[in-house]
Design a protein around this nucleic acid. Sequence first.
DNA 1: GCCGCCCTGTAAGCCTCTTGTAAGCCAGGC
DNA 2: GCCTGGCTTACAAGAGGCTTACAGGGCGGC
Lengths: 225, 225
Amino acid sequence: MRLLYVEDNERLAQNTSASLRANGFAVDCVHCGEDAVHSAKSFDYDAIILDLGLPDIEGLNVLKAVKAVKAEVPFIICTARDALEDRIKGLDAGSDDYLVKPFDAAELLARIRAVLRRPGGALGVTLEAGNISFDTASREVEVDGAPARLSRRELDLLELFMRRKGRILSKDTIENALYGFDEPPTPNAIEVATHRLRKKLIDMQASVSIQTLRGIGYFLDDDGA
Amino acid sequence: MRLLYVEDNERLAQNTSASLRANGFAVDCVHCGEDAVHSAKSFDYDAIILDLGLPDIEGLNVLKAVKAVKAEVPFIICTARDALEDRIKGLDAGSDDYLVKPFDAAELLARIRAVLRRPGGALGVTLEAGNISFDTASREVEVDGAPARLSRRELDLLELFMRRKGRILSKDTIENALYGFDEPPTPNAIEVATHRLRKKLIDMQASVSIQTLRGIGYFLDDDGA
DNA sequence: GCCGCCCTGTAAGCCTCTTGTAAGCCAGGC
DNA sequence: GCCTGGCTTACAAGAGGCTTACAGGGCGGC
């Protein structure tokens, strides 16, 4: 679950993104509108949190620029200005929610989850593959109805594979989905992570497995089908 | 048990919320309609107490706005106006109870409990897990039929775990359920609280235990099952 | 009203689990 | 058979959680 967080106040950015990360999100943090548009176009985010008081580009123009390319990305706008007209403009421009500063981390989290839970959003679906099911809202995994214990990275990976069941994922794609660009891993971190997930899948007798395509990537294979 | 209390009179708000807290509720106190709608959408409250004489938005519109998103939240409306038509309008709009100012804290408490006891409400159920039972109305806990002695926080936590037996609760979820946003604890307050509850559970030989999922949260495990 | 107890949050130190890194091994392809 | 890419294992750092001690506050008893 990857977020773009656009906030020019360095300190606030640090704190907030830390608490978002603590809650299991991969967070890319940028400090100006230009970087924001650039990042939003380059990567697939599950949601974008946008501060309106940016130094370079007017925040709503950032929103419009991104929406023009990726119409479906949910936006949450933060601003110190609580004037009604701003709110209307924001919602008109396609923002999905609105947060008035100062806000606390719990509230932002709640809003992000709410936005992700909307139809078409990333949360609230239960993914199925073979005998395993993945509740994306609570992040609970069951194999043949029995709860399975997975660590956070394992959950992240499994979720990604299940969302793209059967489709091929390059290491690059995986890296982009699981790691923000502030925290780039070495190439084989992903190999190790898939190794660990594979082991767990075997341990819990899942009927799916992760197959390797040498030089290309991985895909989730439903062994029964 | 978390409440949202919407009241623009600062002083009254202070007093009343203090006495609600003294009775074991986590209370979020806001002073205008906008904040009220905002908070109600962001968090899950067990009940909302709404004053009608708000400075910005007409109280009944607050009620409607919230009900549109969270239809099941019980409302208790407070107002100085005791006119019949207001009462009818309030109940029509989906208010569950009605309180005419001035009221005293005991009466409000009684009404809250009454509303929570209704079918689908938070009180009046006896929760069961393993050999322990939790009477949500009287807040009494029994292990193998023998009464157990738990402090308020321990009761709060246990209730939360028993309501979501087997499901994973993040620290965040727990924090939101047990603490109002005026009283944010340090991160490890919850760790300490669960530690204490765990100890009691062992002492009283409960057949359930609280399991940790590192980096994710906790869940109540029925050891027998 | 004062004293003492209990409850609860804070803080600090320790311990455990997770996760990335690195190094060596294995397998497939040419 | 060699080379490349992936797998596996061991290791170390760090995060996260546990435990314990402590202090402030509230409540009841005297």
